[in-house]
């Protein structure tokens, strides 16, 4: 978690971006001069502090990659402003490019017939790394993604996961102040992905680097990111800690094991401000007196929000409880809750 006094490295202020919509030949012939636009970003505002990990969550087409490209100066916004350490992306794009590095999930921007070191060497030079430091930076970046031992193997011989790691190493070689990562662990195996997240946290927080990452990965959103923004159709619907957003939107969830028959247990729990559902048994049958699992959702301030508090309250009320474990919210649930909440409030 960054220091509360840390300054904003990246500020995105009310950025709008629309694209010209592709029309059919028939439409072009009937209305040759007409144009239709699709709004990709609709007044997006976020800020990312020194040492902060900021996640962009949302379904495909929500505008996450477009936002990253605008920040990286690859796209010009129609309106709004992006600044990186005070440098304006539209007025001073060279300064911004010197501070920002971008790694896109779908990108293939490498020399496929060269080895990893040669690719990084080139991008180190393009990023303005002093000649004397190029070798060390290349080794440092390769080490960061666990690729020091790739030797003379050409990139075309790499697996998709290795290519992904190399793209991330390429972003790191410039030691950027703001790192833009689009689904950085998408093609990584679980162990490498976990190590990579640990590396990001260890190395980049210490350097005061701000990291903006678009992700569909629950671990990244809940454990790596200090804050997240949920996007839909080019808008930021909610911003905050992923755990807090999940709790605020549909409470904290616990899986409780009890001998009280599920529906009876829920009726009793409802009187204490708890809502829930009975989890179906695998065999579909219910035996009186057997342990059953019940999912409880804790909503509101006057009910116990911790597992221990919940157990104490249930036992005090005479319910036998064998276990009570918090249930992690899935990213899909979080995004869906934010989007539904936004639509409901919009309709109201």
């Amino acid at each position: 978690m960054p220091d509360a006094a840390a300054r904003d490295l990246l500020v995105v202020d009310n950025v709008r971006k629309s694209f010209v919509k592709r029309r059919s030949w028939r439409q072009v012939i009937r209305h040759p001069l007409a144009t239709e636009h699709v709004e990709a970003l609709r007044g997006v505002s976020i800020s990312v502090r020194e040492g902060e990990f900021f996640g962009l969550l949302g379904a495909n087409g929500a505008g996450k990659t477009t936002l990253m490209k605008v920040i990286a100066t690859l796209m010009l916004p129609d309106a709004g402003r992006v600044t990186v350490e005070g440098a304006d992306a539209e007025r001073d794009p060279v300064a911004v490019r010197g501070r920002v590095a971008l790694s896109l999930a779908s990108e293939r921007g490498l020399f496929w017939r060269l080895d990893a070191r040669e690719n990084l060497r080139l991008f180190a030079v393009l990023s303005g790394v002093p000649t004397a430091e190029v070798g060390d930076r290349v080794e440092e970046s390769l080490g960061a993604v666990g690729m020091r031992d790739t030797g003379l193997r050409m990139v075309s011989e790499f697996s998709s996961g290795m290519v992904q790691r190399l793209l991330i190493a390429r972003a790191l070689v410039a030691r950027p102040r703001v790192l833009l990562l689009d689904e950085p662990t998408r093609s990584l195996d679980p162990i490498t992905a976990r190590d990579f997240r640990a590396f990001l946290r260890r190395e980049l927080s210490g350097r005061g680097c701000a990291v903006l990452l678009a992700t569909h990965n629950t671990d990244e959103a809940f454990d790596l990111c200090d804050r997240v923004a949920v996007m839909e159709r080019g808008q930021v619907l909610a911003t905050g800690r992923a755990h807090d957003l999940a709790a605020a939107l549909h409470g904290r969830r616990f899986e409780v094991e009890t001998t009280v028959e599920g529906e009876q247990f829920l009726r009793a729990a409802a009187g204490r401000g708890l809502v829930g559902e009975v989890m179906p048994r695998p065999d579909g049958e219910s035996t009186p007196g057997a342990w059953v699992r019940v999912m409880l959702t804790v909503v509101g301030d006057d009910v116990p929000a911790s597992g221990a508090g919940l157990v104490a309250a249930l036992v005090a009320a005479g319910h036998p409880v064998a276990s009570c474990a918090p249930v992690a919210t899935s990213l899909a649930d979080l995004i869906q809750s934010v989007v539904s909440g936004s639509r409901t409030s919009g309709a109201a």
Binding site: K69, A72, T73, L74, V94, R97, G98, V100, A101, L102, L104, S106, E107, R108, G109, L110, F123, V125, L126, S127, G128, R170, A174
Partner: peptide
């Protein structure tokens, strides 16, 4: 070819003139 592969974007995202 750089547009097709994304390589052009990679180059243009660097600070190189």
């Amino acid at each position: 070819s750089g547009i097709g592969s994304g390589f052009l974007e990679s180059l243009l995202a660097t600070r190189a003139p």
